[in-house]
Design a protein around this nucleic acid. Structure first.
Lengths: 309, 309
DNA sequence: CTGTTAGCGCATTCAG
DNA sequence: CTGAATGCGCTAACAG
């Protein structure tokens, strides 16, 4: 930096101020210094800057689900644009996760923490809060929101007899209240149409077998898993049933899979959600309150759902 | 650090050495200092450490494909274990990518660079090399390797009449030499069985239509895309053909999709590949040469491929 | 094996 | 608006 200062005929302090956009430098000086710095390919050394200034220009991004690439990409882009480095921590393996929260290697290393799909536990949240920097978490959605969207869509198409396939993995505790949600939407609720399945294609196929055994076939199926929806789709087609002619199918999850096959599904705008989380974090960094309303889930209508016939 | 030093009754230099595992400290002292530090919840400030020591304990991980979560996770885990921080750079958008290589914000910020699935261009490689730190790249595989595996599998099952579906996106220039590879493996090569398709499920369905129009149906189909393979699978089944009874299907790509549906596919051990790349980088950091042989691709046999009947 | 002495490269006072 | 002085917290030579 002193080299640049000498070359520009000013002091290092002025270079520092000019390059960081700090007030207290005339526009002319700032422009000149900036130009000289660029010509000399000079870039501020972050380490020294952090050490002297106290700020670290880095955010820790925690994620337990590397499959959510778009979420991560959205957050990374927004942080980069705001001038922050992204320190990635993958907390997928349980050991890695517990070790992380034990050692908490973030002390004095980052200005904030972004937890993406980690579903922070009580103790974990407290540990992060203890760092003394802003923490923003993106939790997975309340699955009921997705269910509501699906029900609304089907009711709008005239469906009343709808089967609901639950996979514990994805929906969590929604089975407690799903009947209620279905009824609220105006659907008929039948015990034999609330089915549990393993979250696999084979599981979906078995579900159809069970459905075919009953005296009456639903006109639509909601699946909490994309793979199950695919299994349902395949099995119905093999049985000569038309989709969506005879049966409509909606998935509450699995954007990639359902998009590939053309199944109507509820999707989350993960990229935007990542960007939104960064906005909240940056607000926290400035000490302002942030609006906590995340971008909503949306229904993507494809070829597997149509009017009740 | 001086607090710890005082509490332990030693000098700061000793604390530094003890905590970093540097030689020149008695085991007893090291143990004691370590214990005191832990008790005081002291952790070395990376900024100051980097500034004074010259090493940064950080690796830049570049990726153009956030979908490769396992690759990223593998690399992150290995780097973390080696004591390095991971600075993530997503180079997906073309503008982000060009801006990155123009500004090259890594100068004096990292000890090495890991480029995962970015397919570095000539100029980009030179730019990175100019940083003066080790650079390791994980390029996507030569698609011919996958094709060889698939051909070998089918030949072993007695197939001779095999169609090959190419999607430009995935296979790149392989269509130049695919006939050769098929013939090498002992398959019959027919121009009408080398088909081009868009990398979608619909594309795969159209491929089957084209195949059905010809006078003779192949006994197996190799698809360079998982989605196309699924389309082929669906369309064949709807046409009443048994898979793999009448036609076997193999995909050269799309681990998630093919796994979900049960299609035999060539897969890459992405996680291990990430770990391997880190090994190479760490070797470079130590100034040693690294073995450049990446973990090979492998064939995962599932229900879509069987003996020729 | 351990302590002492100097910086690492910058941001921040405080003067001018 | 600008420059000079001071120290951020640590590591690396040195000396003992």
């Amino acid at each position: 930096m002193s080299d640049v200062a000498r070359a520009a005929g000013v002091s290092a302090a002025t270079v520092s101020r000019a390059l960081r956009g700090e007030p207290g430098v005339s526009e002319a000086t700032r422009r000149y210094v900036t130009e000289v710095a660029k010509r000399m390919r000079y870039a501020i050394a972050r380490d020294a800057s952090s050490l002297a200034g106290g700020r670290r220009y880095a955010i820790a991004v925690l994620t337990a689900d590397v499959g959510r690439g778009e979420l991560l990409a959205g957050a990374e882009g927004a942080l980069r644009q705001a001038g922050y480095d992204v320190l990635l921590y993958v907390l997928k393996e349980p050991e890695a996760r517990s070790r992380f929260f034990e050692e908490l290697p973030l002390a004095r290393r980052v200005d904030g923490v972004l937890a993406l799909s980690v579903d922070l536990g009580e103790a974990e949240g407290v540990a992060l809060a203890g760092l003394g920097v802003p923490v923003v978490e993106v939790r997975d959605d309340d699955p009921r929101e997705a269910l509501r969207l699906a029900v609304g869509h089907l009711v709008g198409l005239g469906h009343r007899d709808v089967a609901f396939v639950v996979t514990g993995d994805v929906v969590g505790d929604v089975d407690e209240s799903c009947d209620e949600l279905l009824a609220e939407g105006g659907l008929r609720v039948r015990p034999e149409w609330t089915l549990w399945s393993s979250p696999t294609v084979a599981g979906g196929e078995q579900v159809v077998d069970a459905l075919l055994d009953a005296e009456r076939l639903p006109t639509a199926v909601i699946s909490s898993s994309g793979e199950v929806a695919l299994g349902v789709f395949l099995r119905l087609r093999r049985d000569g049933r038309a989709v969506p002619g005879d049966v409509s199918i909606i998935s509450l999850e699995g954007a990639d899979l359902t998009r590939a096959v053309g199944i109507t599904a509820v999707e989350v705008a993960w990229r935007e959600r990542g960007e939104h989380a960064v906005d909240a974090l940056l607000a926290g960094l400035r000490g302002e309150p942030a609006d906590r309303e995340p971008p909503a889930v949306r229904l993507v209508v494809r070829d597997s759902s149509g009017p009740r016939v």
